[in-house]
Design a protein around this nucleic acid. Structure first.
Lengths: 217, 217
DNA sequence: ACAAAAAGTTAGCCTGGACTAATTCTGTGC
DNA sequence: GCACAGAATTAGTCCAGGCTAACTTTTTGT
């Protein structure tokens, strides 16, 4: 979606906003934190402002817009989840995980972040005790596997492992536009009961992992 | 070390060399695989040749040098370890992990790769059954934590969590240049007995994670 | 054996994101 | 109320890594 540089600027602006409290963030503070020269910051801020990611008036400092803040929070979430993973699973010393996570945070897909979060048991804080921002209320697409029971949703996309698998999914009525509800969910990622039209099916990940849906409004 | 683009070119050249068997790799095959225009490939190959990563003669195709092949193999190792992790730990469908791993492979440090490898139980093949290249015979630096018992090594670097921790490590005789041997290793990453000069110490990760060594030749 | 197709390269251009040097604004001390 | 230190911006450059258009070399089919 955004370049690494853009993501880094946004994240660092959010850190400074949170840390230093009220008021706009100063370009030189940013330059310090990002280890770049001040003019580079000016240039980037102008571009970010054009893209409506920050509000920026020359000599007046910079603030995140709603859009910018959303993105930055997501990055912080990724960063802190990855740190948690590095310490808890890989046993990396806590004072070494920042740099590692700083690189990982740009590489993970939303789906991977989601899975990591689940795998870690939805931690609330990272190894330094800093809170991990919540996942944004997923308005958009999600895997059928993550759809809550009882919620009606519209199928947006159907992936598959091959022609036979695709045909199977189609035979269940799963095609873009179809309306589907999860009527039951067995614990521990167990099978799920789907209602599509007036049919019900009991299926597992071979279905739920391959179908994307959008919740109805 | 290298840019993402360079890493991608090298990796893809290795894949093509392995796949298509003998002979040099053709620039347009590369262009296809990397989804870039052919002239971009020419330009990059010239730079790679300057850096002694490939041997390249115009109109004659390209081959990896020893250096290039070493780097490419490392990338393939990372890629396949990450794929294994994504499937085994995060439960991602096998046909979706390639793209994800393609981004992760550039973000991991050697240390993280090492830890991931251990965590996965040193797998030999990725989820597609493709063999995972072995770690390069670590001639260079490594954490003391990974040093085999009985091997003499020279301390190259001592990190620490703070001044007190640093003083503690110094008090054990751990400073760059010191010669150290692991004389015993308790199972399951348990404590380790170090011999430094004529002293022996029993220590844990608070020491072994922070000290880098190079094996003596 | 040679013309046409395919493959590869050169030339020239563009964008993102950095830099240094020079200039302009802002706020503080007196 | 003004001079000046420090913060910020503008102007101009550079490099990596893409691109298209035009040209050259190699391969192939007859």
């Amino acid at each position: 979606m955004f370049s690494e540089a853009v993501e880094n600027y946004l994240t660092e602006i959010l850190r400074l906003e949170e840390h230093a409290g009220r008021g706009a963030v100063s370009p030189s503070a940013l330059a310090d934190r990002l280890a770049v020269a001040r003019p580079s910051v000016t240039g980037m801020l102008q571009r970010l402002a054009d893209d409506d990611l920050v509000r920026y008036a020359p000599y007046r400092g910079v603030r995140l817009t709603r859009r910018g803040r959303r993105t930055a929070r997501q990055m912080l979430r990724r960063h802190r989840l990855v740190e948690t993973f590095l310490v808890r699973a890989l046993g990396m010393p806590a004072d070494r995980v920042h740099d590692e996570a700083h690189r990982w945070e740009h590489a993970l897909s939303d789906d991977a972040v989601d899975r990591l979060d689940r795998w870690l048991g939805r931690p609330e804080a990272d190894p330094h005790g800093t809170p991990i921002p919540a996942a944004p209320p997923s308005r958009g697409q999600r895997r059928l596997a993550t759809l809550a029971a009882g919620v009606r949703a519209t199928v947006t996309m159907v992936a598959s492992q091959g022609p036979d698998h695709a045909a199977y999914l189609r035979s269940l009525g799963l095609a873009p536009g179809a309306v589907v509800t999860v009527t039951e969910r067995r614990p521990f990622q167990g099978p799920v009961t789907l209602t599509i039209g007036d049919h019900s099916w009991i299926v597992g990940p071979e279905v739920t992992e391959y179908v994307s849906v959008r919740e109805e409004t």
